[in-house]
């Protein structure tokens, strides 16, 4: 994933199209769009990821431009979302929703998970 982000960063620097500010999104709308547009299918309901299908998105550290770029020109397997079906404003709403997600619990507070199986 790191290499994707580096590539994205390079693309952002290179292209004027990416040099815009992140539009202000609406997290409540974004939550609905995250479901309606099918992001949940691969990234999980709540956006915390699934090993087989898509990485964690909640509290994404990506800048909006990189986020948008992943939608338009996915790094590898993700299905592309063109502006015709997820406009920039909708992407901004989804981004706001993901940014607003609460943190996952800390591993040290999960004795059951620490205790599972192989040491």
């Amino acid at each position: 994933m790191k290499s994707h982000i580096l590539l994205l960063a390079a693309a952002i620097l290179a292209g004027p199209a990416f040099a815009q500010d992140a539009p202000k999104g609406d997290a409540a709308k974004g939550e609905k769009l995250f479901m309606a547009d099918g992001c949940w299918q691969c990234h999980g309901v709540g956006g915390n990821g699934a090993a087989l299908t898509g990485p964690k998105l909640s509290q994404t550290a990506l800048p909006f431009e990189a986020f948008l770029h992943q939608l338009r020109r996915p790094a590898a397997e993700m299905a592309p979302y063109e502006a015709a079906i997820v406009p920039d404003s909708a992407a901004a709403d989804i981004y706001a929703f993901l940014k607003s997600r609460p943190a996952s619990p800390d591993l040290k507070d999960l004795p059951l998970l620490q205790g599972m199986g192989v040491k």
Binding site: G44, G46, K56, L113
Partner: peptide, 14 residues
């Protein structure tokens, strides 16, 4: 195992 546990924590309460 530790990496797997970290990944497991992500959806813990979901």
């Amino acid at each position: 195992a530790n990496n797997a546990r970290k990944a497991g924590a992500l959806q813990w309460d979901s």
